[in-house]
């Protein structure tokens, strides 16, 4: 899908031709807007311009504008992206942008999706620390060089933007599938020495909608804005599940 964006060229008349999805998934439609082209303009800047200068009824979601909060993900020219860190120049084709809400999530209105199914699956995957100590205990000492710590490190910087969830075809085909983000989070916790819920979590991530549904298409890894590899994390869970089937599972 990366090739879709190649061959970017400047807008003809200093104006970007923008199409934005308006309304809901079923009865919505694209509306066209013209936005002045500027240097170092992000896709989020373009959406904000439309909302502030052209049509105040446009609904979209953002918060930090610096790629930390994971709120502003949208589909840009067919590709899921964090819009606050996506320079228009790198994705516009002949000055044209088509901006849609994320795929695989219910559309509330315009560019706003209902993130509830995404976070529900985090919980279904036991994507939370099961603490084994309390605040009185000493801070856990974890060797940064241990294989578990390295495995957790590789996946822990997820910003919950749902770009991977939107990119994943298995999520589209199988609504029960927990998805790359939730499974990636589960994998980091399976490698967290402080966690006491590993057996329970392994059951959760090998349920009907669990890690074994992943076909390793790697769309999640291709599109993750912070460069994580949920595919590798899911493969880790598969290995863990296989070991558990031979009596070598986490306790």
């Amino acid at each position: 899908m990366g090739s879709i964006d190649s061959g970017s060229q400047p807008a003809a008349n200093g104006k970007l031709e923008i199409k934005i999805w308006r309304g809901r998934a079923k009865d919505g439609a694209f509306s066209a807007y013209q936005v002045p082209e500027q240097a170092h303009q992000t896709v989020l800047d373009v959406v904000t311009y439309v909302q502030r200068r052209i049509d105040a009824t446009l609904a979209y979601r953002f918060a930090c504008r610096v790629g930390m909060c994971g709120s502003c993900a949208m589909t840009v020219n067919g590709v899921p992206r964090w819009t606050c860190r996506t320079d228009v120049k790198t994705v516009a084709r002949k000055g044209r942008l088509v901006i849609e809400p994320l795929r695989n999530l219910p559309v509330v209105k315009d560019l706003v999706t209902d993130m509830a199914p995404f976070f529900d699956k985090w919980q279904a995957a036991e994507g939370r620390l099961q603490a084994t100590s309390d605040r009185e205990a000493e801070v856990a000492t974890i060797d940064p060089a241990s294989p578990e710590r390295k495995a957790a490190d590789a996946g822990v910087e997820c910003i919950n933007c749902a770009v991977c969830y939107s990119a994943c075809d298995v999520v589209t085909w199988n609504p029960d599938y927990l998805g790359p983000a939730a499974l990636n989070r589960a994998w980091t916790l399976q490698n967290d020495e402080r966690d006491g819920g590993k057996a329970e979590r392994l059951r959760a991530v090998t349920s009907d909608g669990g890690c074994q549904n992943c076909h390793s298409h790697q769309s999640c890894t291709e599109h993750c804005p912070v460069g994580l590899s949920p595919t590798a994390s899911i493969a880790g869970l598969k290995r863990m599940a296989t070991r558990a089937a031979f009596g070598r599972g986490p306790r």
């Binding site: 349920s207 669990g210 074994q212 599940a241 296989t242």
Partner: peptide, 12 residues
Amino acid sequence: MIGPRLWLLQRA
């Protein structure tokens, strides 16, 4: 849609 047993059986 695929549980861990069928998944393992297919790999085996």
